[in-house]
Design a binder for these strands. Structure first.
Lengths: 329, 329
DNA sequence: TTTATTACGCGAAACGTTTTGTTTATATAC
DNA sequence: GTATATAAACAAAACGTTTCGCGTAATAAA
């Protein structure tokens, strides 16, 4: 910038004004543009960030970047942020709370303007450093047990309810569920399962509710257990994508097959439909819309230094039909 | 930091020295630590970056963040960078050259210390701004046609050669290939296919070489074409993961099945084994090792302001057996 | 004791921008 | 022709660190 100054004979202030869209004399404008071109000058965003205390970067933390769900999320969020001229700084929490907390501090020290989180933690305590610096936060897909933040998600309870309802409509009564009990999402979905069963007048059997971490291993193990039961269920609600993956693997390895012996319904249509046979019956989330909303919410907070109570936005889900459920009797 | 100064009565210089691990009197050390704790002081990395002209951030650009391959890559790279205390700034090129070029400028203006790229472009021209600023660059998985950079990849030609060899060993002679002809990787793989066929003394039939973009759509379309041929091949080499996905979909929808009617072998084991039936016969890349090496290479350049010619590192591939290939005759 | 050496600490300059308040030049109104 | 308003440019301060060169006090060597 100093070179541009020397070349044009103008002051730094004037050049800065030009760069930020202020009024300068047409002749000077030409002069500056010429100098910039010749010198290949590009603003140093670090210096700019220092004085403005704004970096035009938002931090995005995902629970696990290897997860296909995260990939989609990051794609949509990135696309949306680009529209508004923001960049993103992505952190992978590797499904570990310590790493998540560490990443948060990292983003804060990097002075991001806001943070979007798909959290692994179920409590919001680790967000303290961000709150201290008044950095706005928006949660996606999951919220905390103990604290309210801006949040974009689906109503997991209702979604699970509807999924079970489909199984019920296909005359299933021995319905099991495999879900995570260490994350908000899973817990809500189990509630939805129980609601549906209760409402259908079916006694809830503890041994049909299988819980564990959010992982394909758990899906695999628990499905094996279900299949080995003397009174094995005729249908299973798989509480998340990874669980579904593991569950299907277990069925494939067993002497049973889907949907002949067991019907399956899952969450989040993340694989290309039709590659897997039988195709999966699924509850799908409107991810693109959710991401748009999350960015909108965050930017609103960033721009008018977000006062006001946290808002929680719930999107509806859609059912994607597949071949993994069949009617019994 | 000023508050810490006032609280301790020491100078900024001393505090800075402490923060950077320099020698300070034990009593002052205690004093500073106490003040930092009480004030919840955290260094402003932006300011630090401005004066040091080092941000301890590396930019990572992937061709398509939705791709599961990218997810794995980002996971490993992120993990590796964390070890060395570097953060990462991820950009999604959305498979578009314009976006890729734009992202690069973004990273440069953000003064990242180095850049790791899984490029969509086949030529290196768009890297100009980074070269001007002497920002080290390492390519992963793909290199350019026109210019050499540090690069970590597999020998695609040999890998494809071996894959075809497996088909040949299973007595297939009517072997087709579906691959991308718009990216380096695909072109190399086609060469490997041709080598293997030639070496086996089999005439190469133009109509058995199907090319297009790197996408599941192309895999789907081209597989349909192959299946509709009067002299349809008995085996197909699928040139990349997405193509495989689309190809399998096409087979599933047809009256043929795999491996009874057609054998398939693909690249990159990205789905959990066993979920897909039949399981896929695949050529897999040692992704973790590749990522480690890429980071090592980049950091070496960053730290000793990378002189020396570009180095290109080729890893070997491994064959993961599956059920999608069967012997004929 | 004197001198040389070491260990800390300090003030001030630097990094590359934006911003604030002021000055200068030009046009408009009376 | 003077007063007033407007537009553009400027100089200097600020952002929060690190670093450089120098001073001072304590320790070791002569």
């Amino acid at each position: 910038m100093r070179d541009v100054k020397n070349k044009t004979g103008l002051s730094l202030a004037t050049i800065s004004k030009y760069l930020n869209g202020g009024n300068v004399l047409p002749e000077n404008k030409v002069l500056i543009e010429k100098a910039i071109k010749e010198l290949h000058y590009e603003v140093n965003e670090i210096a700019r960030g220092l004085v403005k205390n704004k970096t035009r970067i938002v931090g995005v933390m995902v629970h696990d970047i290897e997860c296909y769900f995260s990939g989609k999320l990051l794609h949509y969020i990135g696309q949306e942020l680009r529209k508004y001229g923001y960049g993103m700084m992505i952190c992978d929490s590797c499904n570990a709370q310590e790493i998540e907390a560490q990443n948060l501090k990292f983003l804060v020290s990097r002075k991001v303007d806001g943070i979007i989180i798909l959290p692994v933690n179920m409590k919001g305590g680790f967000l303290e450093p961000a709150k201290k610096d008044k950095i706005p936060i928006v949660l996606v897909d999951r919220s905390f047990q103990d604290e309210e933040f801006d949040c974009v998600a689906i109503d997991n309870q209702i979604a699970a309810f509807r999924a079970v309802d489909i199984l019920l409509k296909n005359n299933h009564r021995d319905i099991a569920v495999i879900a995570s009990d260490v994350e908000y999402t899973g817990i809500e979905r189990i509630k939805g399962y129980e609601d549906a069963m209760r409402q259908a007048g079916i006694e809830i059997r503890r041994e049909y509710i299988k819980t564990g971490r959010h992982s394909s291993e758990v899906g695999y193990e628990k499905m094996k257990e279900l299949l080995a039961m003397p009174n094995r269920p005729t249908a299973v609600l798989m509480g998340n994508y990874d669980t579904m993956l593991g569950g299907v693997l277990a069925v494939n390895e067993s002497r049973f097959s889907c949907p002949e012996d067991i019907s399956l319904i899952g969450f989040d249509a993340l694989m290309i439909t039709g590659v897997v046979r039988p195709s999966w019956y699924m509850v799908v989330q409107p991810m693109e819309k959710m991401c748009e909303k999350a960015v909108e919410l965050l930017l609103k907070r960033i721009e008018k230094q977000g006062d006001g109570a946290p808002v929680k936005i719930c999107f509806g889900t859609e059912i994607q039909k597949g071949e993994s459920v069949r009617a019994v009797n």
